[in-house]
Nucleic acid binder design. Structure first.
Length: 724
DNA sequence: AACCTGGTTATTTTT
DNA sequence: TAACCAGGTT
């Protein structure tokens, strides 16, 4: 296997270090590549794919690479195609999309409906609530979210709950899980966990399919192996078989998804599971400065659950890691934003433990007129109007999807009340059919509640009409038709509130997303569109253009920035209070912190606030223990000026959207000067020229071009512009 | 069926 | 604190 190295060095190997070359060339049998943060992992993977195709003559369609995010898959595919100079026929996709493709293709063998819908987290939660209602169990005693997470945990471990266990909770869990699953079945739908579970079962049970797939996929690669759960592990094992070529790439120090069922032992025990395994390490780091690596390395060295590796920096020196202690969370945000404003032109990220922390940073950035983007939070596809429209599309494809039906049966309002829906629901439960079928039967047998009969019939006809038209339409065309036929657009247009305006804009964006899909996809279909939307993740939608990005530590995995601000490093937050007590959980928190630190190329700042509002109450905080695990010599410590002073009185908080606080804005006299052609200075973008301006006063909207940054649209009120 | 209100409740992290 | 829900009112 190594003979091609000596005979003639492949051009695919140039620019790779010794370890990377070996990782590219070691293609056969089980291989574990331990890839440290910033060690050029993706590069190795794409060179490996190219090497297999070009040098070893393996047909591209025999290669399968599985990742966790669409973004990673997309990037991998794109770069591999660029390297090979042509379209690549390999499957490079996420675990979930791989399963969907498999299940759509082998639905019969898997024993599921070919046209299944995918339920999202909202649908799942709603289904659990329904189950509780049907069982006459109070939500207070049985929190739906906890039930759902237990159901999901059970599915991810490969053993769906049964109600046989002893404890009352387990018994209830079993009952609820059973009802929950019934609803999925009646709706011809699968939840996220089912996608993996059914695919794994299919491979386990059906020898023909298994053989077929093993023959097809002769080289399988799994990225981020440290984040695989039990079911994913089973899936991979069935897919590969004892003689297969399996390569897994991962880093045990970056395993941060145990709460979603990921099992760090999958990577730690790889050599036990595959005794013939070759283990290769990538320990040369091309991303971060020496100072950053030393600090991060010292931190993670406190973990016991690891194979252990030492990253070597290729960049020497660099700024020391900064630790800043702020008086409170407001000052923490101001400090960070001041630092960001000072370092023009570099890309920075603020990383926090939980989404709720983003707001203060958003407000501070907005006040300074610094453009930013937030990853996560309320995503585009989670907005009500978007989900409503998508629900109509789901009904077109599968009217039995009861969650979709429930969602829009009275949206926009058409006189179908809660009681009517409940009545139908009961009917459906009695007969063990979907809501749609119950509706149909009730209509045919004149069982509909008198007052709602007409609107219900019209709703039914509406769905049928959309179904009839769907075949001849593009996805965008169908969306437009749905907007019109349902009266959704009209209802929004009639109401001229700011909110409705926003919604219409979002729907317009949905239309353009659909148009984009129609144009780009080879064979665009409604099913394909819905699948893609369901499998989209938060980080897939990261906009890369903003100079500052705000996100959780979890979503930062796999990304890199010039500057990293790791904020809220306090006991109870990082490590999170829920992780106190168990060593495993604490180690995961430490890894989370490690992941955050190793995102930084040039500068790393760690901040904490001496007191912070928690549960709406101000409480003093302790610095995170992780701060003490980084050697003092690596750090420069600073503090707010009023460190130790009594807590200053704060004006009552005001919602920024309603009443913007002008902190730094052009002086009033300068507002009129902001005309096209005028030179201005921005704290972040540097000097630029006004290209265009519309409106007047603080509401004035400006288009300004900055050197090296391009044109930016700014609102005068927020823009910290200075006329020069 | 939409709106209001007061009380309760919660905070990880998300493919 | 603020988001959410159940229950009541219009």
């Amino acid at each position: 296997m190594l003979d091609s190295v000596s005979s003639e060095p492949s051009p695919l190997l140039t620019g790779l270090n010794e370890q990377q070359r070996e990782a590219v060339l070691t293609t056969d049998g089980p291989v574990l590549i331990l890839a440290g943060a910033g060690s050029g992992k993706t590069r190795v993977i794409i060179h490996r794919l190219a090497y297999l195709v070009r040098e070893k003559g393996v047909p591209a369609r025999a290669l399968l690479a599985v990742t966790f995010t669409n973004k990673a898959a997309g990037e991998m595919k794109e770069r591999a195609e660029k390297l090979l100079g042509g379209a690549l026929e390999s499957w490079i996709c996420t675990f979930h999309s791989f399963c969907v493709r498999l299940l759509r293709r082998y639905a019969v063998e898997a024993g599921i409906e070919p046209g299944f819908m995918i339920w999202d987290a909202d649908d799942q939660l709603e289904a659990v609530k329904q189950a509780l209602r049907a069982l006459a169990l109070p939500e207070k005693l049985y929190p739906p979210r906890r039930l759902l997470s237990d159901i999901s945990a059970a599915k991810n471990s490969g053993r769906p709950p049964r109600g046989e266990e002893g404890s009352p909770w387990q018994e209830t869990l079993g009952l609820v899980a059973e009802r929950y699953q019934q609803q999925l079945t009646a709706s011809r739908a699968l939840d996220f966990d089912d996608l993996l579970l059914k695919a794994a079962r299919l491979l386990e049970k059906d020898e023909r399919v298994r053989t077929l797939l093993r023959e097809r996929f002769r080289y399988v690669l799994v990225d981020e192996y440290q984040d695989t759960n039990r079911v994913q592990y089973d899936l991979v094992r069935h897919l590969v078989g004892p003689e297969g070529n399996i390569t897994v790439v991962g880093d045990e120090d970056q395993s941060i998804y145990s709460w979603r069922g990921a099992d760090i032992n999958n990577i730690l025990d790889f050599e036990r599971d595959f005794p013939a395994a070759r283990v290769l390490r990538l320990e040369e780091n091309y991303r971060s400065s020496q100072a950053i690596l030393d600090a991060a390395g010292a931190l993670v060295a406190h973990n016991r659950q690891r194979k252990g590796k030492t990253l070597r920096a290729t960049k020497q020196g660099g700024d020391p890691v900064r630790v800043h202690q702020a008086g409170d969370e407001f000052q923490e945000a101001s400090w960070v934003v001041a630092q960001v404003a000072r370092a023009r032109g570099e890309r920075a990220a603020v990383l926090y433990r939980m989404n709720a922390q983003s707001r203060l940073f958003e407000e501070a950035l907005m006040r300074q007129g610094i453009p930013y983007s937030v990853v996560g939070g309320v995503g585009f596809y989670e907005r009500r109007e978007v989900k409503d429209l998508l629900a109509y599309l789901r009904l077109v494809l599968n009217p039995d999807d009861s969650m979709a039906l429930r969602r829009v049966v009275n949206v926009p309002a058409r006189g179908i009340g809660e009681r009517t829906v409940e009545h139908l629901q009961q009917l459906a439960a009695e007969r063990g059919v979907s809501l749609w079928l119950a509706l149909q039967q009730a209509d045919d047998q004149d069982l509909l509640p008198a007052r709602a009969a007409l609107p219900l019939r019209r709703f039914r006809e509406l769905v049928l009409q959309l179904q009839k038209e769907a075949a001849a339409l593009t996805v965008k065309g169908l969306l437009e038709r749905a907007l019109h036929l349902t009266g959704y657009a009209a209802a929004l247009a009639q109401d001229d509130s700011h909110e409705s305006q926003d919604r219409l804009e979002n729907l317009a964006e949905l239309l353009s997303a659909a148009a984009d899909f129609d144009a780009r996809e080879e064979a665009p279909s409604l099913a394909g569109f819905l699948d893609r939307v369901s499998l989209l993740s938060e980080t897939d939608l990261v906009r890369g253009d903003a100079p500052v990005v705000l996100m959780t530590l979890h979503s930062a995995k796999g990304l890199e920035f010039d500057s990293i601000y790791l904020v809220g490093l306090e006991e109870g937050l990082v490590p999170h209070s829920r992780s106190h007590g168990s060593r495993e959980a604490l180690e995961e928190e430490r890894r989370l912190c490690y992941v955050g630190m190793t995102r930084a190329r040039q500068r790393l700042s760690l901040t904490w606030a001496r007191n912070r509002r928690v549960f709406g109450q101000r409480r003093p905080s302790e610095p995170s223990r992780f701060l003490f695990e980084v050697p003092r010599a690596e750090m420069v410590v600073s503090a707010d000026d009023d460190y130790g002073a009594p807590e200053p009185a704060r004006p009552p908080r005001r919602r920024f959207e309603r009443e913007p606080e002008v902190v730094v804005a052009p002086a009033a006299a300068e507002l009129d000067e902001l005309r096209p052609g005028v030179r201005v200075r921005h704290p972040l973008f540097g000097e630029g020229t006004v290209l265009q301006s519309e409106g007047a006063g603080l509401e004035k909207k400006l288009t300004v071009t900055f050197r090296g940054v391009g044109a930016k649209r700014l609102v005068a009120r927020y823009a910290a512009l200075e006329v020069i």
